[in-house]
């Protein structure tokens, strides 16, 4: 079984991920890749609260995710990998060549970002990061929920 969804979402685990994607995909494993969350038991407890007991959540640093990526891909359960920012996504795309698709699920407004889609705000630097990821042959699309059509990178940058 491959990783069904590699998603960048600055809320990480939340309702849209667990219910919106998790239920139709029959997800059994969530890999949350974030160096800061990996260092904080308290943060991990917060994120676990939103996940039903039949879904295992593993927390990994970027380095750990690179080591575990193949194991998650071959796990018999349907897996989702979540990242909170584009730097993490770029690092994983560079170091995990079998990661061929990237979902942009939610990057919200901050100073320096402009609206690209209702749920995607990007700075010019972040647009360059996404294009660099795509240049590696990764298919980048924006899609908040599975019932919405995926938006190709060139249509929102």
């Amino acid at each position: 079984m491959s990783i069904a969804l590699c998603r960048v979402d600055d809320r990480l685990i939340h309702g849209q991920v667990v219910v919106g994607w998790g239920q139709p995909l029959h997800c059994g494993l969530i890999a949350l890749v974030d160096d800061e969350v990996r260092r904080s038991e308290w943060e991990q407890d917060l994120y676990r609260m939103g996940v039903p007991s039949h879904i295992e959540v593993v927390f990994a640093s970027v380095d750990e995710a690179v080591e575990q990526f193949a194991a998650w891909e071959s796990d018999p359960r349907v897996a989702m990998m979540l990242m909170g920012d584009l730097d993490t996504a770029r690092a994983l795309c560079e170091r995990c060549p079998s990661m061929r698709r990237l979902n942009i699920g939610g990057i919200h407004h901050r100073v320096g970002r402009t609206e690209r889609l209702r749920y995607v705000y990007l700075s010019d630097g972040e647009v360059a990061t996404l294009r660099a990821i795509a240049a590696r042959g990764v298919t980048v699309t924006a899609q908040d929920v599975p019932t919405a059509p995926p938006v190709p990178l060139e249509d929102f940058t």
Partner: peptide, 16 residues
């Protein structure tokens, strides 16, 4: 609203 997700985690961060 929900016993998990962004609303709860944000509230708990504030209440911490």
């Amino acid at each position: 609203d929900l016993p998990g997700g962004s609303c709860l985690t944000s509230a708990l961060r504030l209440a911490h």
